[in-house]
């Protein structure tokens, strides 16, 4: 796999040399590969938001480097500006950014800032609307007439329309109901598959992130505490608990079963995986061998 983003010894200090000085990230090194789905977890204040805002150049490192495709994103101003488009960042509650008269124009804001032709803008808006499941009829409405779930999709479409190589989303499903959550996650996955884009998703829901991510990065106190497959990360339940994080519900059930004296591998994290582990034990035969 080839890396698309390389973070080297990144440190970020807010309000330096004031009484409010605060080190949000210290010496973080991390590589994101092309086409990879990374789940970023950590409790509030662990440095996740600061980290993702470095990846598209919204924040400038106090020290350290961010490389995109092997090039320092702060090398020259034109490149830094390009990075905004190639690394798309969807903030928490992104519907707060909607401002245009129609959904179409709002989604077109990013592509227009890229300086694309009208035809290309149109193509991209329609494609982004397709990825996020917005009907063409919705595109001519005012964004403020939409339902909560639709607003969220329109806002995500506004970033997807820039067709970034890396799509970063900060809790894209916050505040949505179960069906709304499921469909947004499906949209993100379809974009990733179609564009072979890398996705970095911040989430507080371990169940959600466990089913989606190829790799989990755990942040704690401004550093990367763990990085590995969900399988590897969730098998360190004790350490996660010490960081104030939970393991997915299924892992909890299996861990509890171990407490009850059942020898079962607790690293399953989806319902299907858990059932797979449990079925042999529940069908008799070699259950307690």
């Amino acid at each position: 796999m080839t890396p698309i983003i390389e973070i080297q010894n990144l440190t970020h200090v807010y309000s330096p040399q004031t009484p409010f000085e605060h080190t949000a990230l210290s010496d973080v090194s991390l590589t994101i590969d092309r086409g990879e789905f990374v789940g970023l977890i950590g409790h509030t204040g662990s440095g996740k938001s600061t980290l993702i805002q470095h990846m598209n150049g919204l924040l400038r490192p106090t020290s350290g480097h961010i490389l995109f495709d092997g090039r320092d994103i702060w090398e020259d101003a034109a490149f830094t500006r390009q990075i905004r488009f190639r690394v798309g960042l969807v903030f928490q509650y992104p519907e707060a950014q909607l401002f245009e008269e129609t959904v179409f124009r709002d989604i077109a804001f990013g592509p227009r800032n890229m300086g694309l032709s009208e035809d290309e803008i149109r193509t991209r808006v329609l494609r982004a609307a397709g990825f996020t499941g917005l009907d063409e009829a919705v595109l001519e409405k005012s964004p403020f007439e939409l339902s909560g779930g639709q607003k969220r999709r329109a806002a995500i479409a506004g970033v997807i329309a820039m067709e970034p190589d890396v799509l970063i989303l900060d809790e894209p499903t916050a505040g949505l109901d179960p069906s709304g959550r499921a469909s947004i996650l499906e949209n993100i996955r379809s974009y990733q598959a179609a564009q072979h884009a890398a996705v970095i998703m911040v989430s507080h829901s371990m169940e959600e992130i466990a089913t989606l991510a190829d790799r989990l990065v755990v942040m704690n106190h401004g550093s990367v505490a763990m990085s590995g497959t969900p399988h590897a990360v969730f098998s360190r339940a004790q350490e996660l608990a010490e960081m104030g994080l939970e393991v997915p519900c299924m892992t909890q059930v299996l861990l509890e079963l171990r407490h009850l004296g059942v020898r079962v591998d607790p690293s399953a994290y989806t319902i299907e995986q858990a059932a797979e582990r449990l079925l042999p034990l529940l069908k008799g035969g070699a259950a307690h061998a």
């Binding site: 919204l58 905004r84 488009f85 903030f91 992104p94 707060a96 804001f109 800032n113 890229m114 970033v159």
Partner: peptide, 16 residues
């Protein structure tokens, strides 16, 4: 705080 957030979100879409 809200203004800061909105500014960051629009900058992420290339606003200048």
């Amino acid at each position: 705080e809200e203004t800061d957030k909105i500014m960051a979100a629009q900058k992420a879409r290339g606003a200048d």
